[in-house]
């Protein structure tokens, strides 16, 4: 990781008696694309709104480019492009008027670049905000976040409502921002988009950060599935006790076995070699499956809440 541009230390926020986030700490390096993952209500938006100084943390601190997000909020916001989770804008302004208004509030927006962004997203700027579809509303907000080429992009579920073509355009814009050395911090619960664009991710659950790591490091904890077909029946239970095997299911009247494996498959391969193997397939689950496993049931998190991988 490069020198951190976003630093979050033991950030805690509650809403009256209700939990917001608890002791969240993470760092995002300059030029990094960081995916912030978690199910609904996990605390993603709370964390982002604290970074944007829309909420004040009860404890802990958040800094961007060394500046305290609350105390130096104006300086911080000069560096940031922001997409809120639920964009709400004046319904009677056209897309063009909204972009012009925010360009005026920010200052220093290159009009030719702004027009390029409008063309890229194929946005009709003459329509009123209330007349836009969900996807077009999202485009307006995305353009206003990118239009001043911010050093840091803070995006709360930015692709929600975008069609696949525009999602691709967004991915490309994120990659371009990264290539230009800008930092992108975005929340999502769609792992496929995170997989495509992020170099590191953090997973938040019930207000607590349960994982932070590189996308490849996290891949190591993936559980994958091995299916072996044998020429004769074999005892499936002999595979169940192998290192890394989390479940073993007999197939074909005992002449096969389906294994869920975490970590190296060495023990499985060696055990299988004791029998005549007809075929062996290994299926690597998507991060989606990995992610779901983190949230599949309460009380199963002790293994995962181990901190940074």
């Amino acid at each position: 990781m490069t020198a951190p541009i976003i630093e979050v230390e033991r950030l805690t926020k509650s809403y009256g008696g209700k939990r917001g986030i608890v002791d969240v700490s993470l760092e995002v390096g300059e030029g990094e694309v960081f995916g912030f993952l978690g199910p609904n209500g996990a605390g993603k938006t709370t964390t982002i709104r604290i970074l944007m100084a829309l909420l004040r943390a009860d404890a802990g601190r958040a800094r961007i480019a060394g500046l305290d997000c609350w105390e130096k909020s104006i300086d911080v916001k000069r560096l940031i492009g922001y997409v809120p989770g639920e964009p709400s804008l004046d319904p009677n302004l056209t897309g063009g008027q909204i972009l012009e208004y925010f360009a005026n509030l920010r200052g220093g927006v290159d009009q030719s670049y702004l027009k390029k962004l409008v063309d890229r997203f194929d946005l009709d700027t003459s329509r009123k905000f209330r007349q836009y579809s969900t996807g077009n509303k999202r485009k307006v907000v995305l353009i206003q976040a990118f239009m001043h080429r911010p050093r840091v992009l803070v995006l709360d579920e930015p692709t929600s409502g975008l069609d696949p073509l525009n999602q691709q355009e967004f991915d490309a814009m994120v990659r371009e921002a990264r290539d230009e050395g800008h930092t992108v911090f975005f929340s999502s619960h769609v792992l496929s988009e995170v997989e495509k664009t992020c170099s590191r991710i953090g997973i938040i659950r019930e207000g607590r950060l349960v994982r932070v790591g590189g996308i490849h490091e996290l891949a190591e904890i993936k559980r994958y599935e091995i299916t072996i077909t044998f020429a004769q029946p074999v005892p499936a239970e002999s595979f169940a006790s192998l290192e890394g095997v989390t479940s073993a299911e007999p197939l074909n009247n005992g002449a096969g076995v389906r294994l869920a494996v975490q970590g190296p498959a060495d023990a499985v391969i060696k055990a299988a070699a004791r029998y005549p193997v007809v075929s062996l397939t290994s299926v690597e689950p998507s991060l989606e499956d990995t992610f779901l496993r983190f949230y599949e049931a309460d009380g199963h998190s002790s293994k995962e809440v181990a901190g940074v991988v």
Binding site: M52, L54, Y82, G107, Q144
Partner: peptide
């Protein structure tokens, strides 16, 4: 309360 100030406050204005 409807969130219409969020983006305005994300601009570098106090």
């Amino acid at each position: 309360s409807d969130g219409r100030l969020d983006l305005v406050l994300s601009a570098p204005r106090s």
